[in-house]
Design a binder for these strands. Structure first.
Lengths: 189, 189
DNA sequence: TACGGCATGTAATCGGTTACATGATTTA
DNA sequence: TAAATCATGTAACCGATTACATGCCGTA
């Protein structure tokens, strides 16, 4: 009854089903991939396990198809809606940046080893490329939605995606250049 | 032998011990809190469990104090160093933003409910405040390190912290204002 | 009607989290 | 020497990930 047993995954499931009505685990997977999947991932199998947990808690109902694939469709119950609403109106706390690249950079910069410098460069270039690709995707999405320039907030979460990618590209770019740059710069004439 | 069984937590432990020599779980906790703890957290108990796993894998050695608190100190083995080095030179992949606020915003903006608007504002203000506080902490840390303005990359991971917080404040600020702003603006004279 | 890919699930393991519990040092 | 706090660990549960496995359906 208490929401203590509900994880973020639970609310992702509840959120989608609440908004778009009955759907299957496969539908959930597609929705997630196309939206929050960009910044919050989990394996597909969890989208099969989680709805069943929620059925057990009375927050979802299950309806299985008779023929064909015998799909299991889930729809939200009143209690489910309540739980979701309560969660939405609760403070969210501070986010985490689960960034393996940042972690590696941290240890590489700490390292006295000289070889670390070339590792930093490799890492920085990898990351810059990844973030540039991602930024391209986001920009494309933003263009398609045709939101006016001065109302970027209408892009919703996409807006933070854009800002974040821009920040990352600036950040990793510094390190990619740093690893090569200073060598030439320190050469006085 | 394969690194497959090593998680990010494993490398956090290996990384600290590799850099700073033998230490206890409690030392690890303090180091983590003061550095990567800002963007990558885990419960304290894991810093007791994880080193023991690593001892089992031969990547760490354990030395227990005789008297007093009978502390367990861990030091890295050669295999541990190798495993860490291999990990550092491996592509890091794309980061995740485990941001409950962003998740909530996503569902709130999706929602047709009218009450959602005030929830958005509450959320946005909470987040803006949190990020402002965090930014203050980062700025303080940056000031103390006395790195020249034009070499922010010397701040290492802190630099991304600063950029990220600035982006978040801009982002959430838009939503905090958005929720109130348009109401007055749409009032024609 | 065979094949490829889309769709759908289960089993088993394990890392991570929460909760519990106690000992050692310091300081008032 | 009592209290407060710092320090140190264990136990149990459970969500999340990996790996396994099969069924439906369009199409050539």
């Amino acid at each position: 009854m208490t929401d203590a047993t509900l994880s973020p995954s639970s609310f992702i499931v509840l959120g989608f089903i609440s908004r778009f009505g009955a759907m299957t685990s496969y539908d959930l997977k597609r929705m997630a991939d196309a939206s929050i999947g960009y910044f919050w991932t989990f394996p597909r199998s969890q989208l099969y396990a989680e709805p069943q947990r929620l059925v057990g808690l009375g927050l979802l109902e299950e309806h299985q198809e008779e023929g064909g694939r015998r799909r299991r469709e889930f729809r939200i119950t009143e209690e489910g809606t309540d739980a979701l609403q309560r969660w939405l109106s609760t403070p969210a706390g501070f986010p985490e940046l689960r960034d393996l690249g940042l972690l590696k950079l941290h240890f590489l910069l700490d390292s006295p080893a000289d070889a670390a410098r070339s590792e930093v460069q490799r890492l920085a270039e990898e990351q810059r490329t990844l973030h540039e690709e991602r930024l391209t995707i986001y920009r494309e999405a933003a263009r398609e939605s045709a939101v006016p320039e001065d109302h970027r907030e209408l892009h919703g979460t996409l807006h933070l995606g854009l800002l974040y990618e821009e920040a990352c590209i600036a950040f990793w770019g510094k390190f990619a250049d740093y690893a090569t740059g200073p060598i030439e710069k320190s050469d006085p004439t």
